[in-house]
Amino acid sequence: MNSNEQTFSPRGPIIVFSALIFLTIATVMLSGLDIGNIGALIIAMSVASVKAGLVLYFFMHLNHEPLIFKLFVALAFVTLATLFLLTFSDYAFRGIA
C-alpha cells in the first residue's frame, strides 16, 4: 500500500459508503418483488457480492496492493466456490427433505 497519501481526504471513502448504502436499500426493495426463489436469491447474492467487492477493493485497499494480494484473494474465493459447487453435486441430485 502506498504510504505516500500525505493529505487526508474523506471524499473517496464517503463515495464508496454512499454506494454501499444505496445497494443495501436497493436489495431490500428488490426483495419485495415477486420474482421466484432462484431469481430473488441470484439478485440478493449478486448485490451482496458487489458490496463485498467494494469493501474489499476500496475499504480494504486492495486497489493499492500488489498483484500477489489480488491473486491470494481470488484463490480463497475460488476455493470456497469450488467447495460449494462440489457439495451441491451431491445435494442437487438427492432428496434430503
Binding site: T79, T82, L83, L86, S89, D90, Y91, A92, F93, R94
Partner: peptide
C-alpha cells in the same frame, strides 16, 4: 486434492452423480 474429498463417501448413499 481439494476436488476429490467425497471418494471417501461412495458407500454412504450420496447421489450417484456425485
Amino acid at each position: 486434492g481439494y476436488l476429490i474429498w467425497a471418494h471417501h463417501m461412495f458407500a454412504t448413499g450420496m447421489s450417484d452423480v456425485a
